[in-house]
Simulated scan of single mutants.
Amino acid sequence: MPKSILLAGGGTAGHVNPLLAVATAVRQKYPDAAITVLGTREGLEADLVPSRGFDMRFVPRVPMPRRPTPQWFALPSKLQSAVTAAREAITEIDADVVIGFGGYVSTPAYLAARKLDVPIVVQEQNARAGIANKLGARWAKAVTTTFESTALPSSQVTGLPLRAEISALISALENNPEQTRRAAAAELGLDPNRPILLVTGGSLGALRLNRTITQVAPELLEGGVQILHLTGKGKSEQVLEDLSSLDPIARADYHVLEYLVRMDLAYAVADLVVCRSGAGTVCELAALSLPAVFVPLPIGNGEQKLNAGPMVDAGGALIIDDSLFTENWVRSNVVPLVRDRATLGRMAIAARSVGKPYATARVLEVLEGVAGWSSND
């Protein structure tokens, strides 16, 4: 009997990347399985999912207000439309199982699956679960989490499913770390024999990181450090302006890009990463044994600080509040650290101690158990 699965999630890379990791794993193990992804037209999934060759079904975007607002009055009708669309998608492929990754689209998927008596699996990325996954966990046959501290009923810790390119990089680094670093450095125009600092605020960038690092650029460059700075889309102009007074020779070691599709190349060359602490970033760095300086996003429900906790507690990363990430702090902490190979080596070992490089396979095992699948069928 043909296998079929519906995956629901989207809006941000934090939801879409683990969804794609699981979808890819299902396709690799069960090439004949019907794989459908439920998403919204406004989210990243609208572009990323079809580009990976997966079937896409859309539902209306239905934000769930956290407190009473005028939006509450329109919620029932909007949600019903989304549930109807989700039910049609589940019925169309006769799904064996529905797995949700959170975000607006997961709520209607969970509601539709419950009405159709289709088993549900929840995958929660963050240390603090979102509204959709809290709801889905009430009816789920299995709940998988990234962090031990996540408070969801009957959950099991699997780690975060990693993108295929990150899994491939883990294998490459295990087999030949020096060759992998040199090949990536050649692609990016960097010297693999010198320290490399990766700075990234994610696809949207982070103004605090951008401004602070450029202000400390002279000290970093004088110490022989190369900087790979991913500014975020539309934010490179200000960074380049801030760097305009640098000595031209030193400036050649400061590499500015708005965005890098091949993040695996950046990770392959980095000795230290300065970044936000979304669940995906934290888990990828831990699995790759990459030391980090985490500057959690100062808005939201505080999940980014919680996400970073295990890696920081293990000694694999530093953490600093956004408001305290100043020039003086970077001069005192980041400038000496990126040149300290012994300390970075100890941090790398500590980071790996909390990493879960095989999370995708574990989540797939959970799915197989809930759906009753066997590769021998």
Rank of each mutant, 00 (worst) to 15 (best):
M1V: 15
P2T: 15
K3Q: 14
K3E: 12
S4W: 03
G9I: 01
T12P: 13
G14H: 06
A23S: 09
K29L: 08
A34P: 02
A34R: 14
I35R: 03
E42M: 09
G43W: 09
E45L: 06
E45W: 09
A46Q: 12
V49A: 08
G53Q: 08
F54Y: 08
F54W: 07
D55C: 06
V59H: 07
P60E: 13
V62F: 11
P63W: 12
P63M: 07
P65K: 11
A74T: 13
A74K: 13
Q80V: 09
T84A: 07
A85V: 15
A86N: 04
A89H: 04
I93F: 01
D96S: 06
V98A: 07
G100E: 01
G100Y: 04
V105N: 04
V105A: 04
S106T: 08
A109S: 02
A113M: 05
R114K: 08
K115N: 06
L116T: 07
P119S: 02
P119D: 03
I120N: 03
V121T: 06
Q125A: 11
G130I: 09
I131G: 01
K134Q: 15
W139G: 09
T144N: 14
T145M: 15
A151H: 15
A151V: 14
L152H: 14
S155A: 15
Q156R: 15
T158D: 09
G159C: 11
P161R: 02
A164T: 13
A164C: 06
A168T: 13
A168P: 08
T180V: 13
G189E: 08
G189P: 03
P192V: 00
R194F: 03
T200R: 05
L204I: 13
L207G: 07
R211S: 10
Q215S: 10
A217F: 11
P218N: 07
G224D: 00
G224T: 07
L228M: 05
H229N: 02
T231Y: 09
G232M: 09
K233D: 00
K235T: 00
Q238A: 05
E241S: 11
D242H: 15
D247P: 03
P248H: 08
A252N: 15
D253P: 01
L257I: 02
L257K: 12
E258I: 10
D264I: 00
A268W: 02
D271N: 01
R276A: 00
R276I: 02
S277E: 01
G280K: 00
A286M: 01
L288K: 09
L290C: 04
P291W: 08
P298T: 02
N301W: 05
G302L: 06
E303T: 11
Q304G: 11
A314L: 10
A314V: 10
A317E: 02
I320Q: 13
D322M: 08
L324S: 14
F325G: 11
N328I: 14
N328M: 12
V330E: 14
V338C: 12
A342C: 10
G345D: 05
R346F: 03
R346C: 04
M347E: 11
A350S: 12
A351T: 06
S353G: 10
S353D: 09
V354D: 12
V354I: 00
G355K: 12
G355L: 10
K356G: 00
R362W: 02
L364R: 10
V366R: 08
V370A: 01
G372M: 04
N376C: 01
N376P: 05
D377M: 09
